[in-house]
Amino acid sequence: MKRSSWAIPYALFLVVFVLLPLILVVVYAFQDSMGRFTLGNITKFFTDRDTLSTFAVSLEVALENTLLCILLGYPAAWILANRKLNRSAVTIVLFILPMWVNALMRTLATAELFNMLGVTLGKGTLLFGMVYDYLPFMIYPIYNILDKMDKSYAEAAADLGARPGTVFWKVTVPLSMPGVASGVLMVFMPTVSTFAISEFLTNNKIKLFGTIIQENINSSMWNYGAALALVMLVIIGLSSLLSGGEKEEMQGGLI
């Protein structure tokens, strides 16, 4: 058997489970309910005020969530990667441990906790749930890059006269930006498309883009749902390209 034929099962898998569904999404997005070609689904998205405002809210929540994750995650990653402050691998596992529990279970439990404490569900609880769910995805890539960073960069900066604070802002932070960029990628887009967290933690008071797609699909409006999913896909694709390009320059990141 030729070596290249080993790839056949994978190719088959890709066609059946990735390519075909994608084609279906595109086909559905450009059809009306009778199966005729139309651009109506796409134009509907850009003209429907409800959908657009939900989209705006989604982006806002995603942005806030991402910022919070960076603010909380960066220091956490820095502490974890600092051998003086963290001498054991156990602490890292503790940070990753929540990811081993089903996300739905965690969200439901969080909602119950808020109910028990009598906290009104809304924007605050939504962000709490989001940060709780996505923080590890921010911590891990940043931790990884900080942990592997050659410490001679920091030493060189100190040697050239930089105080510890200056070393951090002028060398450590810029050099860890690729980690932040992949963290952003892993937090930002999933937040836009999630619906479970907003459903459970706001009782559907706040709708996100993912919620709308889910509602449309659930009420058998396949074509409009597919069009929305396509919009989403394009945005994810664009933002990946953007952060990929930034990564080469090792500066900036998505924000």
Partner: peptide, 29 residues
């Protein structure tokens, strides 16, 4: 601490800052 000593080091693996160009590396101090 190192940043207060009037000494400078050339490191074995150079440790040039990859996020800065040649000019900014030299001008850092």
């Amino acid at each position: 601490p190192p940043h207060q000593r009037p000494l400078n080091t050339v490191f074995q693996r150079y440790a040039l800052f990859p996020h800065l160009d040649v000019y900014d590396n030299i001008a850092f101090g």
